[in-house]
Amino acid sequence: MSDLSRLPWPFAPGETTFRYAVNVEPARRRIETPAGHWGEHVIDLGDDYLEQMSLRRELLARDPGRRQVLPHMEPACWDMLLFLLRELVATRPDAMHLSAEGRAFHWRNDLLGIEQAFVLGDATTLPTDPLTWIGCQVPDDVLMVSDRGGRLWFDAALVTWAAAWSVKFDVGMHLDEIHGPVPRLNEQGVTSRATRFMRSLTSDVVYRRVNWTFSAHGSPRRDISLETKPDWDADIPRLIRDGDWPRLQLRIELEHLTRLPLTGTLTFNIRTYMAPLGEIALIPEWRDQLAAVVAELPEDIAGYKGIAPYRDDVVAYLTGAARSAVA
């Protein structure tokens, strides 16, 4: 069983349609769901923290390019590091400990067995660069955006769980360029409203947003980057051929947005969750709502999400599950 008890379900109660929107809300608010609850903290370590962090270390060792930092972003990485350390403490004060004397900090992560003294801004005091060091202690993909000349630029990131995109390809673009392929987003002003929203963010608030799709792999593996496309490309066609719908994964991305205090850099951190349809089908509210949303989804959005070829099967599977539950 995967852990649905902390799943950030992407649809509001009663909602039966989906369109792209600037669906942001203040973070750090607990939401009750039919399977449990989520959202109390900015960071959710999950029940597989050690395993995910070990996967991330392996992936970075194999492909160091998953970390991209434009030269001017080094101070922003330190800014992010400090922000995330404090959020780790807020999440697990029993296991995470941070103390400071001026710019000299002392950190202890009991879960990963890390103990480290460092001076903020002095890269020689850490065993790796600051972004790798912090990125290997949080389950989120870490993304940094610069607010420059009226535009938002994707200038640094550590991403190991990308959904069919490549951090190497996207780094250095501005947000309108990155979102060019998303239907209706630029045309309907969603990107420009999102940009205005991001630019108005201040460092004393954190916002969040939930996004969803179906994963391009019928397993909980989160790494479906373009870099590894040959490894996962054949999986969904096989799943469709076999009609193995319970194995299809609803992929939910919980994004946290804030402005880092020292450099004004914007964060776009993404925590990825996976939930197989077979388990969603056991929770009636979620099963019925997902069936309704997928059935109503306009063709262009379904196409972008890559689910157009099999959306009717998904709806049929979910409604079939509903019928057999009644029977």
């Binding site: 434009l70 001017h72 972003m73 101070p75 922003a76 610069s146 420059r148 630029w153 200038d155 201040t202 460092s203 402005r259 205090p261 450099t263 004004g264 850099t265």
Partner: peptide, 12 residues
């Protein structure tokens, strides 16, 4: 506050 309305341009 503090509020940042006169920030440093990192890319300079």
């Amino acid at each position: 506050g503090p509020r940042s309305a006169f920030p440093f341009e990192l890319a300079s």
